[in-house]
Simulated assay, not measured.
Amino acid sequence: MIGYVTLGVSDMERAKAFYTELLSDFGATVQFDGGRIAMIGKSMAEPMLSVCIPYNEEPPTPGNGSMVALPASSKAQVDELYHKAIKLGATCDGEPGQRIPDMFYGAYFRDPDGNKLAFFVFG
């Protein structure tokens, strides 16, 4: 149902490098690069993550209460991807752990521009 989610960034090259490396385990690559906007995913026919320099040319700002949550295949993959994000320059916003007993396991981080993301798995 979701086509793509867009995050405002201040440095396109840094953002493309961060997200293509972080999401490489999912087979994600830059599917479209329009200069001030790039779409990263497995194909243009599947949900993607878009990064862009804001159209109004104002500095990007993370949305208060906004977050992009990316599904993982296991708790181990949540842990692995969280640590990969941190190694790539993200900051911790909630270490990996069980959030709802027997229901939800997740890890939270902020990208180099302060956008909040999570990797999660149900169960």
Rank of each mutant, 00 (worst) to 15 (best):
Ala38Glu: 10
Met39Ser: 08
Met39Trp: 09
Ile40Arg: 03
Gly41Trp: 10
Gly41Gln: 14
Lys42Arg: 15
Ser43Trp: 14
Ser43Gly: 13
Ala45Asn: 15
Glu46Met: 09
Pro47Lys: 00
Pro47Ala: 01
Leu49His: 04
Leu49Tyr: 08
Leu49Asn: 01
Leu49Cys: 10
Ser50Asn: 10
Val51Ile: 13
Val51Gly: 06
Val51Asn: 04
Cys52Arg: 09
Ile53Glu: 03
Ile53Lys: 03
Pro54Phe: 09
Tyr55Cys: 04
Tyr55Trp: 09
Tyr55Asn: 02
Asn56Cys: 05
Asn56Met: 11
Asn56Leu: 14
Asn56Ile: 04
Glu57Thr: 00
Glu58Val: 04
Pro59Val: 02
Pro59Gly: 03
Pro60Arg: 09
Pro60Ile: 06
Pro60Glu: 11
Pro62Trp: 02
Pro62Gln: 01
Pro62Glu: 01
Pro62Asp: 01
Pro62Cys: 00
Gly63Val: 11
Gly63Gln: 08
Gly63Lys: 06
Gly63Tyr: 02
Asn64Pro: 01
Asn64Ile: 00
Asn64Lys: 03
Asn64Phe: 04
Gly65Ser: 00
Gly65Ala: 04
Ser66Trp: 12
Ser66Phe: 12
Ser66Ile: 07
Ser66Tyr: 13
Val68Ala: 05
Ala69Trp: 00
Ala69Lys: 00
Ala69Pro: 10
Leu70Thr: 05
Leu70Gln: 01
Pro71Thr: 07
Ala72Val: 02
Ala72Ile: 01
Ser73Gln: 09
Ser73Phe: 00
Ser73Tyr: 00
Ser74Val: 08
Ser74Phe: 03
Ser74Tyr: 03
Lys75Ala: 13
Ala76Lys: 07
Ala76Leu: 08
Ala76Thr: 10
Gln77Trp: 02
Gln77Arg: 05
Gln77Pro: 04
Glu80Gln: 12
Glu80Lys: 09
Leu81Glu: 03
Leu81Ile: 07
Lys84Cys: 08
Ala85Phe: 04
Ala85Thr: 05
Ile86Val: 11
Lys87Cys: 06
Lys87Arg: 13
Lys87Ser: 14
Lys87Glu: 10
Lys87Phe: 02
Gly89Arg: 11
Gly89Cys: 08
Gly89Ile: 12
Ala90Gln: 06
Thr91Pro: 00
Gly94Asp: 02
Gly94Val: 05
Glu95Asn: 12
Glu95His: 12
Glu95Trp: 12
Pro96Gly: 01
Pro96Lys: 01
Gly97Lys: 13
